[in-house]
Amino acid sequence: MSGFDESLLDDADETVRVRFVVNGRKVACEVAPRETLVDCLRNALELTGTHAGCEMGACGACLVQLDGQAVHACLMFTVQADGARIDTIEGLTESGVIADLQAEFHRRNALQCGFCTPGMLVNAHELLSRVTQPSREEIRDALSGNYCRCTGYEAIVDAIDAVAKARSESGGAT
């Protein structure tokens, strides 16, 4: 048996219904199969914290968490995410899990125009959940797919480094 319906081919501009959990809320959208996840998040769901930069996986501005892992929202079509759990910068902000990272980015001026910041934060969040005390080298390596055209990265690395140290100090106490 096969689930493939040949009439699909005659109707290439159809929309399909996609359901997923975005920032903890169940969401259903009608999307064209060619619509990327970043476009769906920004246009249909009005979650504009996820930025569309290069749209080819080079700049990292569109990173979101898909089932708990950082991925480029420009490198997948919304239909591929059907049934998945997606957390955007808005969700991570609301839940407070990156509050210390955000405060440290702010304190150290680790952004100027801010376009790259959501992607930087999603990536830094993933790094720190995987490696509790990354070296500066490891931080730089983790950020190698995130472009920042303003800061020269130094303050961003400083901020992530400071949060890693603060977390492991307070983590030692609990």
């Binding site: 096969s2 689930g3 109707d11 290439a12 199969p33 060619r34 080819m56």
Partner: peptide, 17 residues
């Protein structure tokens, strides 16, 4: 930077694909 329209089919088995 947008793909041309296409249809999408999610296969559950190798045979379906």
């Amino acid at each position: 930077m947008k793909a041309r329209a296409f249809s999408y089919f999610r296969a559950a088995t190798i045979d379906q694909a």
